[in-house]
């Protein structure tokens, strides 16, 4: 009896629950692919999957950053505006400095995003504005700044250097360059969340902020970092966005935050905070893009796509909440049994 109870530790239960979540997404992905492959003739073609990879890439990059924020039990609604602003500024840099090296402009875009994200972080962590309100406000403010800067004009593709536009058309080893970049970002993100001590703090803060503070974690600093990273990756996302959609105007990436948050929530990032992995988010982004692509091939009205996004969020949150609740109940029962068993042992 004791042996059985001791083997099923709370940690093992939690780990099992994580893997269950990712297995769940993978299963859903597999089912969707099967479904669409049967119904739509060109679904399994190489060019179709290259298209899916293109669309997933930018969402995935920004979603990694959003994940960090949600892990700390916050949310960042302003990523769409940051992407739009960064996209325009990246393109504008190329217009004024035609020979600028591509990596340098990428760094500029990341820096811009970092700054904007930092502002979000300060609003939430220092001014104590709830994240939903703060980023709703900055969503409007950053978009407004974008509108002002563009001044009713746009930047069109012919103004941009080919070295930059190549990012969106090259397909090294058959996979679009943007997808390679996204994979790189995901790997770095996954490694960071797993091994970097300051990143592991995100999980602690999200699970139980008071305990985190008592454990000596600098909560304020970590939260600002999370928002700054989210902003930086949104900045990078904007840079890639401008390569993919080189005609950049003031409405670029409007409502993009919804795609990002959908990917994260479907990917198992729990809005309660403290739960989520990069693998899950990446799978979530692929799942969303796959289903949307399937819709296009099946010629389903694109109006259903928006509904699907929202519906998926509601379903994912419901499942997660019920699963989390089950897990917590199981944990509590397990701990009570362990205590009861130890008590009996002590008395024996």
């Amino acid at each position: 009896m004791n042996g059985v109870v001791r083997r099923l530790t709370p940690q093992k239960l939690a780990a099992a629950a994580f893997r269950l979540r990712e297995i769940g997404i993978a299963a859903a992905l597999g089912i969707s692919v099967l479904f669409f492959a049967i119904r739509a003739p060109d679904f399994l073609s190489v060019s179709n999957w290259q298209g899916i990879a293109q669309n997933v890439a930018i969402v995935a990059v920004v979603a990694v950053g959003e994940t960090m924020v949600i892990l700390t039990r916050n949310i960042d609604l302003s990523v769409g505006s940051i992407v739009g602003l960064s996209a325009y500024l990246s393109a504008a840099t190329f217009v004024h400095h035609h020979a600028a090296p591509v990596p340098v402009v990428a760094l500029i875009a990341i820096a811009i995003g970092l700054g904007l994200g930092f502002v979000n972080g300060v609003l939430v962590a220092v001014a104590r504005v709830p994240a939903i309100i703060a980023t709703l406000a900055t969503l409007g403010i950053y978009r407004g700044i974008d509108d002002e800067i563009t001044g009713g004009k746009n930047i069109t593709a012919y103004q941009l250097p080919d070295s930059f536009l190549k990012l969106a058309s090259e397909k090294p080893a058959g996979l679009p360059a943007l997808a390679w970049i996204a994979i790189g970002v995901c790997l770095v993100g996954a490694v960071t969340l797993r091994w970097a001590p300051w990143a592991r703090d995100f999980y602690a803060i999200g699970s139980n902020p008071d305990a985190a503070r008592f454990a000596g974690i600098l909560v304020r600093r970590r939260v600002i970092t999370a928002f700054a990273i989210s902003g930086a990756l949104a900045g990078l996302g904007g840079f890639l966005f401008a390569a993919r959609f080189p005609t950049v105007d003031a409405v670029a990436a409007k409502n993009f935050e919804l795609d990002v948050i959908t990917a994260a929530v479907i990917g198992g990032v729990n809005v309660f905070g403290g739960v989520g992995t990069v693998l899950g988010v990446a799978l979530g982004a692929v799942l969303v893009a796959t289903i949307q692509d399937g819709f296009i091939l099946l010629r389903i009205s694109e109006f259903w796509r928006l509904f699907f996004n929202g519906f998926a969020i509601v379903v994912a949150v419901t499942i997660d909440a019920l699963v989390t609740r089950r897990l917590q109940d199981a944990l509590r029962r397990r701990r009570a049994e362990v205590r009861a068993a130890r008590h009996r042992e002590a008395q024996a």
Binding site: D42, D249, A253, K254, L297, E302
Partner: peptide, 18 residues
């Protein structure tokens, strides 16, 4: 009249109507 949406719609046309 949005560049991004127009690009996506074009991509959709290319994919859905071979």
């Amino acid at each position: 009249d949005e560049p991004t949406e127009s690009a996506k719609q074009t991509q959709g046309l290319i994919q859905a109507y071979p």
